[in-house]
Design a binder for these strands. Structure first.
Lengths: 150, 150
DNA sequence: TATTGTTATACTCTATAACTATA
DNA sequence: TATAGTTATAGAGTATAACAATA
């Protein structure tokens, strides 16, 4: 593929910002005994009830990895397992009230931790940045994943 | 801290893009038996010769973690350890020719993997995105870290 | 005394393989 | 037969503690 200056500069910025964001998330997660992946799961199930396998696929993890991950969060009272109404084999992941509260708190901490960085942009620039990122982003896990009809 | 719509939308985009980028880096790294951190180290020492402790601090890792990490990369012939000319206790990390070649190849793979996403922006938008990210980014590890003068 | 780096040890995250239950 | 999920097991990444060498 032919190199391209505008792409290279943008890619460098995206990769560096990714490591920066991950650093903050890792640190804040660690302060609450949460791994990066657990943090991410909390953010996802905040407004979704995905099945184990859908969540694993979205995260790029093996089902077995997710089993342990959810088990640990469940033991801490942050998540719960539920039965799927449409498939007796399936398990859906639910957030608890405690999990939701912790997620809110974590979100605030992340926003505050990144404020010195993001505050270097004017409000209209922040808006512009969000809009430029939009087309680059992969679609999120849908709130109500479509299933095979019966 | 008071919520702010422009900040929230931007933060959501930055966090999502961070996970997306990390996913690609993790996958490509895994295809070459490299962890995300090893990938990152290669990118850093590509044009620097940091000391172990400086590199560990920059990565937010313990010295002992870096010892093992560098040892594994050294065994594979990607990195080498060298003596610091100014401090007999210090060890500097160097990239080998093989490491440099692999790093170039990985860069291309990352760029290609993200091309479908980044290609959804026009060249002038890519330039704009890079410029908006600039003030948000933490400074990189300096090519020649300043040391206490003797 | 303080700092640089390594080693021994333990824990978490992750994947692979084997298994049960359901589709 | 194929799919959803769990468990047993093993490998890599990480931190803590103890150590040797140098500042």
């Amino acid at each position: 593929m032919a190199p391209d200056d505008s792409t290279d500069a943008m890619l460098d910025g995206l990769v560096r910002s990714a490591f920066q964001i991950m650093g903050v998330l890792t640190r804040i997660g660690a302060e609450h005994d949460l791994s990066l992946t657990q943090l991410r799961v909390l953010g996802i199930v905040r407004d979704r009830q995905p099945r184990m396998s859908d969540l694993a696929a979205f995260l790029g993890l093996d089902k077995s990895t997710l089993s342990g991950l959810i088990a640990r969060a469940e033991r801490r009272g942050l998540l719960a397992r539920g039965a799927s109404p449409e498939d007796k084999r399936a398990v859906i992941v639910l957030i608890t009230d405690a999990g939701r509260e912790l997620t809110e708190r974590l979100n605030e901490e992340v926003r505050d931790a990144l404020a010195p960085a993001t505050g270097r942009l004017e409000p209209h620039q922040r808006h512009q940045l969000a809009q430029l990122l939009e087309p680059v982003l992969s679609p999120p896990l849908p709130p109500a994943p479509r299933r095979h009809a019966h």
